Amino acid sequence: MKKTLLYVFSLIAAVIFLYPLLYSFFSSLKDNVEIYNKSVFSLPEIWRWENYKMALVDANISRAILNSFIYAIPGTLLCLVLALMIAFVLTRMPLRINPWLYNYFAIGLMIPVFSLMIPISKVIGAMHLFNSYPLMIVLYGVFEMPLAVFLITGYMRGISKELDESAIMDGCGPVRMLFRIIAPLAMPAVSTAGILSFFDIYNDLVWNVILISDQNMNNISMALMSFVGQQGSSQLGPTFAGIMLTILPTIVVYLLFQEKVEKGLSAGAVKE
């Protein structure tokens, strides 16, 4: 009975989550007449693949996807390296400042990003650093650090300190101990923090709107918003095609790292 209820619940959840995806896919291959007058899941009378071509050309989706990866991959790596080093200090070095430092990053989780938009934009404007890839990468990496520090520190505390003593006896310094011994053992938490940070940066809209005015540097969310604004309700097919092109990379990335996502989340939950 319990298994039957679980299967029913899973089926309902699958339908709820797949409905928007299937609706967007079928609509991306139709024209306005079919979208308004036909059934949601009816197959297109004519498969209008040119809608995808229009979205790629007019919205420059391919460039926006590349920009999103340019922001997300280095930003995530920067966040993880810094978070690993901070977590190592918090859990392995008995410093008096450690409780204050941990609380400092914990508070960072509670501060709304919208409260920082005006001061940060003014500082960046005064430094004339708008439309800068390095600036965006550093900004994204720093903003993702509180969550990464929280996750990795919680997991790293569960790693036995006897390993540290053995490593020191073998001549390991702090840097080598962190990246050769502690970091591999903390990979479940690192994977969780990395995946969450990657998708958060990839899908960001707020900072791209504020700090980027060059259309060639727009990320995927900004390009889609601009394209939808241009199309309005005139051509819904290309609009849905643009939506599909924006979510396809995230689906592919998730399918590739699905196992690590599940293991990382469950392992991090157990350690916490």
Rank of each mutant, 00 (worst) to 15 (best):
F9Q: 08
I12D: 04
A14F: 10
S28P: 08
S39K: 14
S42E: 12
E45V: 09
E45D: 13
E50T: 12
L56Y: 09
I70E: 07
Y71V: 04
A72M: 01
I73D: 03
G75N: 00
L80G: 04
A83V: 02
I86H: 03
P94K: 14
P99T: 05
L101F: 04
Y102W: 07
N103M: 13
Y104F: 15
F105H: 05
A106W: 07
M110D: 07
S121H: 07
K122I: 13
V123I: 15
V123D: 05
H128K: 15
L129H: 02
S132L: 00
Y133V: 14
Y133S: 06
Y133K: 11
L135T: 01
V138G: 01
E144P: 00
P146A: 06
L147W: 08
L151K: 03
G154H: 09
M156I: 06
R157Q: 15
G158Y: 12
I159N: 01
I159H: 00
S160L: 04
K161T: 15
A167Q: 02
G173A: 13
R176S: 08
M177Q: 10
P184T: 01
P184V: 00
A186P: 01
A186S: 03
T192D: 04
F198D: 11
I201Q: 03
I201P: 03
I210E: 05
L211I: 09
N219I: 07
S221R: 11
A223I: 02
F227G: 05
V228K: 14
G229H: 07
G232S: 08
G237W: 01
I251G: 04
E259L: 06
K260L: 07
E262H: 06
L265T: 12
S266Q: 11
A267F: 08
V270R: 13
